[in-house]
Design a protein around this nucleic acid. Structure first.
Length: 324
DNA sequence: CATCAGGGCCCTG
DNA sequence: CAGGGCCCTGAT
């Protein structure tokens, strides 16, 4: 079932994100668990892309600066791509990495904020991003639930291995996502054999609803947040924790914090109050009052900055919160 | 060896 | 709205 595809056709176009744009802060999120579908090395980022039923390879090379952004986008494919589909891919990448949003108001408003200012200054131009589609993200939130990081990674990689393809392009080999059909076809027993446990049923139900076209991402992107949220919560297996990640990362809604899961609560308590545990209500009130309609984006900056710092030197209180 | 919680969510009462 | 159950793992 694991097929290896060589993507020989190559196309190149230019991307001009709205300045300021921070390339590495946008394409690489140190707080996320690693997956074999992406690779990041300094100024170059690769990922697989399952798009319009094609297996594609993506490479982005940072050629600009934060204030004058410019990115070379390479698209790799087995077969030839029309100009139309190339333009579609371009727009999709621009959306997924939130390249066209104007954040100048955000930076201006909080440049003197004692907590946020130093961080937005350092990560000026960083965007919230999801390199994957809504369907793929629901899979992520499903393997995330009730599991330690290590186990989530195992489940995710098992899925890649069993249902995805290996894509070879630009001398890298990356895992690709699969079409929902392959999960629909797979017996629940087979998924359970991959040690997905009770999630097997959830993944099958999700695959079915996406296959039916119940959730059209292009349509959803245009919905106001409350309606979008309601719709997303109707996906089986998506609850208050997952929906929040999706609203923010997949749909770039910057003001969606209403529920603080225990793990985040501990981290926000340290970051904002320098104490072990603050109540969720206090945290919620604090961030909404302080950062208004930007509160989720503000937290994202603080969160990712923390995990960047972790890569440079271990932060002991954080290490204790990360269950491997 | 048994027990339990872990980056949740569904379902029941 | 509270609480039990769910798969599997690794910690105790």
């Amino acid at each position: 079932m694991v097929k290896k595809l060589i993507l020989n056709k190559q196309y190149q176009i230019e991307l001009f994100p709205h300045p300021p744009f921070n390339f590495e802060g946008t394409v690489f999120k140190p707080s996320h668990f690693p997956g074999s579908d992406t690779l990041f090395k300094g100024k170059i980022y690769w990922q697989s892309l399952r798009f319009r039923n094609r297996y594609l390879g993506i490479k982005m090379v940072n050629k600009g600066t934060v204030e004058v952004p410019y990115v070379d986008l390479f698209i790799f494919s087995v077969s030839e791509l029309s100009d139309d589909i190339i333009q579609e891919i371009k727009r999709e990448i621009e959306f997924r990495f939130d390249m066209l949003s104007n954040l100048s108001e955000f930076y201006e408003e909080f440049k003197n904020d004692e907590i946020l200012g130093p961080v937005t200054n350092q990560w000026r131009g960083m965007r919230v991003s999801s390199h994957i589609s809504l369907y793929e993200y629901t899979v992520i939130t499903t393997v995330l639930q009730n599991a330690t990081v290590k186990r989530s990674v195992q489940m995710q990689e098992s899925l890649f291995h069993r249902y995805g393809a290996k894509l070879v392009f630009d001398s890298v080999e990356l895992s690709s996502y699969w079409s929902p059909q392959s999960i629909i076809r797979a017996p629940e027993k087979e998924l359970r054999a991959l040690k997905l446990g009770y999630r097997a049923k959830i993944l099958k139900k999700q695959a079915k609803s996406f296959e039916k076209g119940t959730f059209n991402e292009d349509v959803l992107r245009n919905l106001p947040t409350p309606e979008l949220k309601k719709k997303l919560l109707s996906i089986y297996g998506i609850g208050p924790a997952s929906v929040q990640y999706i609203l923010f990362e997949v749909f770039k809604r910057y003001d969606v914090l209403e529920y603080i899961p225990p793990w985040e609560q501990k981290i926000y308590s340290r970051l904002l109050f320098n104490k072990e545990l603050e109540s969720a209500e206090v945290i919620l009130k604090f961030v909404k009052k302080r950062w208004g309609k930007w509160h989720m984006l503000a937290l994202h900056y603080l969160f990712e900055n923390l995990f960047w710092r972790r890569r440079e030197g271990k932060i002991s209180w954080l290490e204790n919160l990360i269950r491997l």
